[in-house]
Amino acid sequence: MTDITPYDYIPADVAPAEPARPRLLVLATSLVSVAVGMGFLGLIGYYLSWRADVISTGERWLPTGVDIPLTQPNFMGVTLAFSVITIWWSVAAIRDDDRSNAFVAFLISIVFGVAFLAQTAYLFTIMQMEILADERSALIYGIIGTHMVLTIVAMGFALVMALRTLGGGYSARDYEGVLSSALFWTMIVALYGVQWYAIYITK
């Protein structure tokens, strides 16, 4: 065995490294997620501000006879928390070039999303709050409805990425679509956390 030091393997005059492939989809998804997040937080800000004004006058915030049970929102949060695990499972799987697992992980995440929407619909029935009773209830349903729409968008994004993954569109070398989907999904779940505290906890 010859005595070779590691630096002998390094050529003296190497060509510069190829520029890193721009991860434009990840960047754009991050920017869109931030914009969506700010819009949603703005709505929450209006909600809290209005609520504080009403409560400072000694009035009750929620309409009379309306109660928001906490059990259901907690289960919805748990469902979304599980979906975060599965959506990132898809990223981990595609990084191992395991497209089957990635596809399954995507599908499970989408099922969690469907479950979340069903749970929200059930919450509407037990809240017994008319949607158009007054401006407050419209605001509450407006915020919850906005989050539901965002969840549906995230599910659609995940479905497209699942199909592309299954079709060989992504691999361990290029998985920015899968990563983008996971980022957007995580943002939606984080926004639910804000909604959970602002609407369901503080009531």
């Binding site: 920017l31 931030v34 914009a35 969506v36 700010m38 819009g39 949603f40 703005g42 709505l43 800000g45 209006y46 949607i131 158009l132 007054d134 401006e135 419209a138 605001l139 407006g142 906005t146």
Partner: peptide, 22 residues
């Protein structure tokens, strides 16, 4: 712009709800 303008969109959503449904 990405962190400011969505707030205006939120205002418009509330305005939409107030005019259309309330």
């Amino acid at each position: 712009g990405l962190v400011s303008l969505p707030v205006v969109v939120g205002e418009l959503l509330l305005a939409f709800l107030r005019i259309r449904y309330l």
